[in-house]
Amino acid sequence: MTLAAACGGGEGEGGGTDSIKIGAIQPLTGALAAYGEESQAGFEYIVDQINESGGIECMDGATIDVEVADEASDPGKAATEARRLAGQEGVSLIVGSLLSSQMASVSPVADQFQIPVLSLFGGGTNSEYLYTMGLPYKEGYGETMTKFIDEINQKYDAGIQTAALTSSNYEAGQQVDNGLEELLPEIGVEVVGRVPVETGGKDYKPAVTKLNALNPDVVLGLVTTEDGVTLHQARGATDSQLLFVGGTGGYADPYVWESLGDATAKKVLANNTFAMASFSAGAKSEQLQSFLTEVGEADLDVTIGQNFVQGAQAAWVVKNLLESACEDDPQAIYEAFQDVEIAADSDELYLPKSEGLQFDEETRFMRDTTALIVEWNEDGTQDVVFPPEFATREPGVDK
């Protein structure tokens, strides 16, 4: 992967450019590094494949060159790097993890330079130039968890009547909790309290102790990958027997199991836990299973989890954009978002999208906001238990 390359500077549609320069803004250090390291590895893995297999066909085989910038888990630095990439490096497109706070800081830069931006995880967009592969707070995260609770109540008589909300205390977590507060009463579940955890905190035992005192039927929320490790450590240390249903990386990513170690992970993740995820190795998808076999055989020195797969998927979106725009002009690439079409049966689709991957012009999210609910097994593998079209077994619910 080229970290710095000649500026794009295309010569018009269909040719004249040997390479297309894009920027990748990632949290490679700091509290969110798990997102950046894994997703960038997945992104680079597929970009290398694209370049080695002939590049962008409609641009006479032009390759994709990537200028990588570390935003160090700092929204302010994310904006600074976006400004540098757009203004000094002359990139044609910016891609990155860009969680919600970073995305908010990058949005004014996208507007100023009128440069298209693709976020892998952001839950909201504040610029017409910014599209996201993340899930909307209420309609994505909130509705998936609410529908799952309703499903296990109706189908399995789970008896869930009360809920507490525990999310990482940043914009995305707060917005997901707001959405859950609106949605849960509609299915007859009362929210009895909110117990946020500070992002990057080192000890969440006081929070779990408070949750144990509230004694809800379920704890719901969104936590970052690192916060998930700390939360589940606290669950194990306090012997909490509460049912936890949450997303995404902090519940579902293999990094969490690895960081906890087998003993704690078996005690906590494999019991009383359902994880919401945009990806799971256990999903019923031939193309995903084929891809996971391929990267497994490649013996990469990185966790192959949700973040890696999200990065890999983003690379195919970039290829689709460039083939549609057929030039490296930022405006043409921005307009090409409306033409992105990765079919449901395409080898280039890894995410659980039963109708394929496209973007909505108004919301700038993917049109299909489907997410998965998975259940950990004691050997560290996962089974998808919801929604039914991607499930490999029924959820283990105590009636």
Rank of each mutant, 00 (worst) to 15 (best):
T2Q: 15
T2P: 09
L3G: 14
L3A: 15
A5V: 12
G10C: 15
G12L: 11
K21T: 07
I25Y: 06
I25P: 02
L28A: 10
T29M: 09
A33D: 08
G36E: 00
G36M: 09
E38L: 04
A41E: 09
E44V: 07
I50E: 03
N51P: 11
N51A: 03
G55Y: 05
E57H: 12
C58D: 09
M59E: 00
D65Q: 13
D65M: 03
E67K: 10
A69K: 09
D70R: 11
D70Y: 09
A72L: 04
S73D: 06
S73L: 05
E81N: 14
A82N: 13
R84K: 14
A86N: 09
G90T: 14
S92V: 06
S97K: 01
S97V: 15
L99K: 10
S105L: 06
D111S: 07
F113S: 08
Q114F: 03
L118G: 01
F121M: 13
N126Y: 12
S127W: 01
G140F: 08
E143W: 04
E143G: 00
T144G: 03
T146G: 04
K147Y: 10
E151V: 07
I152F: 08
K155P: 05
Y156D: 03
D157T: 12
G159L: 09
A163E: 07
S168Y: 11
E171N: 15
G173P: 06
Q174M: 13
V176C: 05
L180G: 01
L180V: 05
L180E: 00
E181S: 14
E186W: 00
V189Y: 03
V189G: 00
E190Q: 12
E190I: 05
V191L: 08
V195D: 00
P196R: 07
T199M: 03
T199E: 09
P206Y: 07
A207V: 11
A213Q: 12
N215G: 05
V219Q: 06
L220V: 09
V223Q: 07
D227L: 00
T230C: 10
H232M: 08
R235F: 11
T238P: 04
S240G: 11
V245K: 02
A252D: 01
D253R: 11
Y255D: 08
T264Q: 15
K266A: 11
V268H: 05
L269T: 02
A270R: 13
N271P: 04
N272I: 12
T273D: 13
A275Q: 04
F279H: 11
S280C: 04
G282Q: 05
K284S: 15
F291Y: 13
L292D: 06
T293L: 11
V295S: 02
G296F: 15
E297R: 15
D299P: 09
V302Y: 06
V302A: 06
I304F: 00
N307A: 11
V318T: 02
L322D: 05
L322K: 03
C326W: 04
C326A: 10
E327N: 14
D328C: 07
D328A: 09
P330Y: 01
D339I: 07
E341R: 13
E348S: 11
Y350G: 03
P352H: 01
E355C: 10
D360G: 08
E361V: 12
T370D: 04
I373R: 00
W376T: 02
N377R: 14
E378L: 05
V385C: 02
F386Q: 01
R393E: 04
